[in-house]
């Protein structure tokens, strides 16, 4: 093959690769742009500040405050629960167990698999357990389901963070006579910004999840006041409003989508800020 031909091939390949990067980056802009374009005209203060009034679903007045509140309650509660359960587990697995122990390897595998499990599976199981126990769809059911969903995220992210801590630190602290709990405290101090990153990741996933809450949390037009009552969530509100044939209601679905996007973007930006802090901390 002549050199010119080989070089031409190189050039074509390079352009295809550039195009691929462009496609991927632009897909994000397309998604956010579409939601922004369609949602912005329908976004109003009324949308954010009111819960649905009578006839909301045929295009009369009201907003999605109940869904926003429901989503935030649900995500906050389950993120706190998942952090409280997940952080000790991750620390235990890292500090207390030997690298070769069967328990450690098994739980690592378990959390890896659960990390990839689709939320509909969690939702289906939780729903049938709730029927079996005679509990109806409620905020509590949703919180438990979403906690199960976010627990693997917390455990995995924190385990990975703990792996980045230099092992010297652990050995030095131990050699100074610290108990394992005291070692763990030092490690937690070291990964502190990352800890918040993990929590935020879990929060983002919890806010956006649909399939898990579809069956377990139910849907209602009232503000969520009690934990044993059904609650609306933002993704479900989008989902239901979008299936309506009335343009006004569909428009509200786009506006709700925009609100959800904003929440997610805030979460992502905070995560990135904290992650860059973690990097500085390391140097």
């Amino acid at each position: 093959m002549s050199t010119a031909k080989r070089l031409r091939k190189e050039k074509i390949a390079k352009w295809i690769m550039r195009l691929s990067v462009l496609v991927i980056s632009s897909s994000l802009l397309l998604i956010i742009g579409t939601v922004l374009c369609k949602g912005l005209p329908y976004l109003s203060w009324e949308m954010i500040s009111q819960s649905p009034k009578g006839g909301f679903y045929i295009g009369k007045e009201g907003g999605v405050l109940n869904a926003i509140a429901g989503s935030l309650y649900l995500a906050t509660a389950s993120t706190i629960l998942a952090t409280c359960i997940g952080v000790p587990i991750a620390i235990y697995l890292h500090v207390y167990t030997r690298p070769t122990s069967l328990l450690k390897r098994f739980s690592k595998f378990l959390f890896d698999v659960l990390f990839g499990m689709p939320s509909i599976v969690y939702g289906a199981i939780a729903f049938s357990i709730m029927i079996w126990l005679g509990i109806r769809a409620s905020l509590l059911g949703g919180i438990i389901t979403v906690t199960l969903l976010t627990l693997p995220i917390v455990v995995r992210t924190i385990s990975e963070l703990l792996h980045t801590v230099p092992s010297d630190l652990q050995q030095i602290t131990t050699s100074l006579g610290a108990t394992k709990l005291e070692v763990a405290k030092i490690l937690v101090l070291y990964i502190k910004p990352g800890l918040f990153t993990a929590t935020l990741l879990a929060f983002g996933r919890a806010v956006g999840d649909v399939a898990g809450v579809l069956l377990t949390t139910g849907f209602t037009d009232n503000m969520p006041l009690y934990i044993d009552e059904p609650a609306a969530t933002l993704p479900l509100a989008i989902f239901f409003q979008l299936t309506s044939p009335i343009p006004e209601v569909q428009g509200r679905a786009y506006a709700s989508g925009l609100l959800l996007t904003l929440i997610i973007l805030i979460v992502v930006i905070c995560t990135n800020l904290l992650a860059s802090k973690q990097k500085k901390h390391k140097l």
Binding site: L30, V35, G208, I238, G257, L260, I264, V267, V268
Partner: peptide, 10 residues
């Protein structure tokens, strides 16, 4: 990080 339902809307 974008939730599935937004992909659906898109």
């Amino acid at each position: 990080a974008i939730p599935p339902v937004l992909y659906g809307v898109w």
